[in-house]
Computed example of a mutant assay.
Amino acid sequence: MTLAPSQHNGSAVWSDTRLLYALEEAVETELNRHLKVAKDWMPHEYVPWSDGRNFDGVLGGEAWAAEQSKVTAIGRTALVVNLLTEDNLPSYHHEIATLFGRDGAWGTWVHRWTAEEGRHSIVMRDYLLASRAVDPVALERFRMDHMATGFESDNRHSMLHSVAYVAFQELATRISHRNTGNNSGDPVCDQMLARIATDENLHMVFYRNLLGRAFELAPDQTMCAVRDVVVGFRMPGHGIPGFERAAAQMAIGGIYNLRIHHDDVLQPVLRYLKVLDISGLGPEGLRAQQELGLFMDDLDDQARKFDERREALLARRARVAAR
């Protein structure tokens, strides 16, 4: 992306208010595009209701046991993490509604996004309970702990940081859902998560395109925001009880790890926007661009080392299982 001379605003400092106003037209354009391509779908259609039966408790049903689940062990771990991440929607809505506002195109998008994301937690929980995929008691206790803690964004520097974060995070969520479905061992689960992943991809496109417009308006500030977000990226579910252990299992299981993060999340967005090729930057933007490039090289090296360790571990497990 090469900016015309009239667009070389690298040294100019844009306030959040000015940027929100300047991006309003782009938000309206992306909102209209989203509404044209997004397909309405019904969560209840993806739930195997005929598999459901009462649990133990006030209705005197059958207690949950792991052998009742059709889902693989890694699938159960990932499903719990993914659902608990979706459960914190009230906190996410508060964050973006406070930052982006509730009026105009921004407000319309905030409410539309929230409504679409709400479907995800609805269908996932209904699927998990009807299919007895996971322990319902543990799931509810995790939900209470996670939501009671709430969510506070790591990206409170500026609205550009928030736009940059969600551009990557929505794609990361899509990849996590899709890989969970692929590794779930249950075709119904796979179909459900594929439907959710389609939504997440459309959300990513919205924010990615908005980020592209921000680069045209304030290239230095946007580059610094992207650098900060990429270097310090954490998934929104990092506050889930036991997240680090679950994340390690998901990394080894091929749901989400350094290689996937580098190749399937960061690189596609950076490449599409040609972030590392943008010219006409001021000193701060150029420094941020260089630091971003160095970080991506280092992350690729870390991912290579992780791949080697993972392959060795899986090989050892295969040898033990074959004995």
Rank of each mutant, 00 (worst) to 15 (best):
264 D>N: 12
310 R>T: 04
310 R>G: 02
226 V>H: 04
178 R>D: 11
267 Q>H: 11
5 P>V: 02
209 N>H: 08
17 T>H: 10
202 L>D: 10
56 D>T: 13
255 I>S: 07
305 K>T: 02
137 V>I: 13
193 L>E: 01
246 A>L: 02
106 W>E: 06
145 D>T: 12
58 V>P: 10
158 S>H: 12
301 D>N: 10
15 S>I: 01
242 G>V: 01
238 H>N: 09
34 H>F: 15
242 G>L: 03
211 L>E: 06
316 R>N: 12
106 W>F: 05
311 E>M: 09
323 R>N: 10
56 D>K: 11
86 E>S: 04
276 L>Q: 11
210 L>Q: 03
46 Y>K: 10
262 H>E: 12
23 L>M: 14
174 R>S: 15
146 H>F: 15
123 V>N: 01
120 H>V: 03
208 R>E: 13
309 R>H: 11
5 P>D: 03
90 P>T: 04
262 H>C: 08
258 L>Y: 05
248 A>F: 06
79 L>P: 05
91 S>N: 13
280 G>C: 07
218 A>Q: 09
221 Q>F: 03
165 Y>Q: 07
117 E>P: 02
174 R>K: 15
57 G>D: 04
42 M>I: 06
161 H>F: 08
271 R>T: 14
163 V>M: 06
168 F>V: 12
127 Y>R: 07
98 T>N: 15
228 D>M: 02
307 D>L: 09
231 V>Y: 14
87 D>F: 03
180 T>A: 09
77 T>K: 08
25 E>R: 14
248 A>T: 13
221 Q>Y: 03
88 N>C: 09
279 S>N: 12
238 H>Q: 07
129 L>K: 04
294 L>K: 15
270 L>N: 10
183 N>P: 00
176 S>C: 05
276 L>D: 08
143 R>G: 05
133 A>W: 00
278 I>A: 11
255 I>F: 06
218 A>W: 08
237 G>H: 04
138 A>R: 15
51 D>M: 13
248 A>L: 11
297 D>M: 07
58 V>C: 11
6 S>R: 07
101 G>Q: 07
55 F>E: 14
27 V>H: 08
212 G>T: 05
